[in-house]
Computed example of a mutant assay.
Amino acid sequence: MRPAGFGLILACAVALSSAAVILENGMPVLWAQTAGQVSELPISNGILTPDPWHFLNRMSLYRLMIAATDPLMGSMGMSSTLSPLWGLPLQLGWMLTSGRLADPTDATTCGLQTGDTMCISTQSWWGCVNYFTSALPFLSAAQQGFFGPDVQVQLQVPAGVEDYCTTYADCSTRYPDAMSKWDAFFQSHYSSEELAFVNSWLNSAEYVAAAHFQANLEKSTLFLTPLPSRILRAGDVAPNIADLSQEENHSLSIFSWMNNINNLLGGSLVRMWKSAMCSVATREKGRDLLEQLLLNPGFATSTFLSIITEMTTSC
């Protein structure tokens, strides 16, 4: 039986004469064969024991880190491919398909087509350097609870190799500067409630921009005053957040409603709004409509939808 990924490696070897392959179906090479859940990694006595010297295991570390941190990347945009971590798996894929993870000494067949194509050689300078941007951040992410509470990790290491840290404590002792920076990266995150507000805030910008909102002192103050006066915490559910005012609870509810309706409609609410903002008159009406929706608790959301529909047909 040929090793996993043999066909891809063979095809990549042919392609090397022009350019190394880094994408497969729009994702990093062999992405579909990596672990999509932490439970798919090797485990022993309740401790995760991934092998970072096996390409699929090392690529899995990236996939799991990206999946765990994606909900915190709302400020990057709405796409699931905007995380700054994406450069790392692409780089690892390039190292594989360009032959840089194989044993350069020819003392073993690690990483070669005649051996284990998924093997990352401890003699590969590229593979060794990449260890510090894959194993270390994964250990940090696990320590910060991104893969669940009390998840312990003990990385595997090839026999006879002693130069690589394999646990969070070990890496923190050997490389305190690098680990403290990864810890800072994984600790500066918000609650899911705050992230939901971030996404709804980004969605609201579509309406404001299309209506040519007049950002003067008076209007800006009017719209910013009812926004939440603190960062949202776990358990905050508008309109029933006790330590926020009625106005703040109302604005959070409206922001959430606008985003949720737009998502349910596949983005058509924003498209309808942009289409309706086709003239000076409709944009003026649109600005008034936004003001009513955000500032007047008695203004029904159903009225907002019917007015948009009417305005769209008049353009």
Rank of each mutant, 00 (worst) to 15 (best):
L64W: 02
M65P: 06
A67R: 14
A68M: 04
A68H: 05
D70E: 15
P71I: 10
M73V: 02
G74C: 15
S75A: 12
M76I: 04
M76N: 13
M76S: 14
M78D: 13
M78K: 15
M78L: 13
M78I: 13
S79N: 09
S80E: 11
L82I: 05
L82V: 12
L82T: 13
L85M: 09
L85C: 07
G87W: 00
L88S: 12
P89I: 01
L90A: 08
L90R: 05
L90K: 06
G93T: 03
G93Y: 00
G93D: 02
L96E: 07
L96T: 06
L96C: 08
S98E: 04
G99C: 06
R100S: 10
R100C: 08
R100Q: 14
A102Q: 04
D103I: 05
D103T: 07
D103Q: 08
P104W: 07
T105P: 05
T108M: 03
T108H: 00
G111P: 01
D116S: 01
D116E: 02
T117Q: 02
M118N: 06
C119D: 01
C119V: 01
C119A: 05
I120E: 02
S124T: 03
W125F: 09
W126K: 04
G127H: 00
G127D: 02
C128M: 13
V129Q: 12
V129R: 02
N130P: 01
N130H: 05
Y131E: 02
T133C: 00
S134M: 00
S134Y: 00
A135M: 01
A135S: 12
L136H: 12
F138P: 01
L139P: 08
A141E: 02
Q143A: 11
F146R: 11
F146I: 04
F146S: 04
F147M: 13
P149V: 05
P149M: 06
P149H: 07
V151Q: 09
Q152L: 12
Q152I: 06
V153K: 09
L155H: 09
L155Y: 09
Q156N: 03
Q156S: 07
E162V: 12
D163K: 13
D163Q: 14
T167N: 08
Y168R: 10
A169K: 14
A169S: 14
D170N: 15
R174N: 10
P176E: 04
P176Y: 01
P176N: 06
D177M: 11
D177W: 07
A178W: 04
K181Q: 12
A184S: 10
A184C: 02
A184H: 07
F185Q: 08
F186H: 04
F186D: 07
H189S: 10
S191M: 10
E193G: 01
E194S: 11
F197R: 15
V198N: 10
